[in-house]
């Protein structure tokens, strides 16, 4: 029951989000603001997490592939493919749902409970479109870049950590990175990250836009938004992997 209600209302919201914008110039201004707020400000955390995870993966692959029968280069290959296929798209999206998603819900939710949204409506502004559309475009636009950034720094993390930990040499690692490279993995993941970006922008917007009550409810809505976004990301990951990779 609740599921159908929310799904229905979510699509109703999207319908007004994609109505014709009032003033393009102001939307453009909002868009640049959101790209900076949601995208550029996420670069730091993406770089740090990816460096660490790349390093950790490399050490773990080296550990589990310690058998001398396996070529060392498998470590580089494993790190690369894990990053390209799953980590830099899906896991990164889960992390971004926590960072960007809760930010979106609390921003829009606060505007709702302090009547700022009513205030926009009174002025005759389509509040859903004005507030949410720039966020959707911004997040969908930046997600593929964050994916590439994450994959790059993840691989770099392995390159830096592997030799320091003494589990692999730089030439072995680089050989592994080039070995059996499938460019389609990148296409596949970029398609996924476009979907995930859409979810990370719209689901938290939905939870913020329809919040009722006060500051406490805004906090609860943020938590719900992150949990639901995560579940949807995993669900779409499953569906897209089945559709595009088999």
């Amino acid at each position: 029951m609740g599921f159908f209600f929310h799904t229905g209302r979510y699509f109703m919201m999207l319908k007004s989000v994609f109505a014709k914008p009032e003033k393009h110039r102001i939307y453009l201004r909002q868009l640049f603001y959101e790209i900076e707020n949601l995208g550029v400000n996420s670069v730091g955390i993406v770089v740090i997490i990816s460096l660490f995870m790349g390093g950790i993966m490399t050490i773990q692959f080296a550990y589990s592939l310690a058998n001398p029968l396996y070529p060392k280069a498998l470590v580089g290959l494993g790190t690369r493919d894990t990053l390209l296929l799953e980590f830099s798209s899906t896991i990164l999206a889960l992390i971004m749902a926590g960072k960007i998603g809760s930010n979106i819900t609390s921003e829009i939710g606060t505007m709702r409970v302090t009547e700022q949204i009513d205030s926009l409506e009174i002025m005759g502004i389509n509040s859903a479109s004005y507030l949410i559309l720039p966020k959707i475009i911004a997040v969908v636009f930046i997600f593929p870049f964050l994916y590439i950034l994450s994959a790059f720094f993840g691989i770099l993390g392995g390159l830096l950590t592997g030799p320091i930990a003494g589990v692999i040499t730089i030439p072995e690692y680089i050989e592994g990175i080039k070995w059996l490279f499938v460019p389609y993995y990148i296409t596949f993941s970029i398609i996924k990250s476009l979907f995930f970006g859409f979810l990370v922008a719209t689901v938290p917007s939905y939870f913020g836009y329809y919040v009722q009550g006060g500051a406490l409810e805004v906090g609860k809505a943020s938590t719900k938004a992150v949990v639901n976004t995560n579940i949807l990301i995993l669900f779409f990951d499953l569906v897209l992997t089945r559709l595009l990779l088999t």
């Binding site: 606060t110 505007m111 302090t114 009547e115 700022q116 009513d118 205030s119």
Partner: peptide
């Protein structure tokens, strides 16, 4: 509005 509802 009751609380002012200024855009923060």
């Amino acid at each position: 509005f009751q609380g002012g509802a200024l855009f923060d």
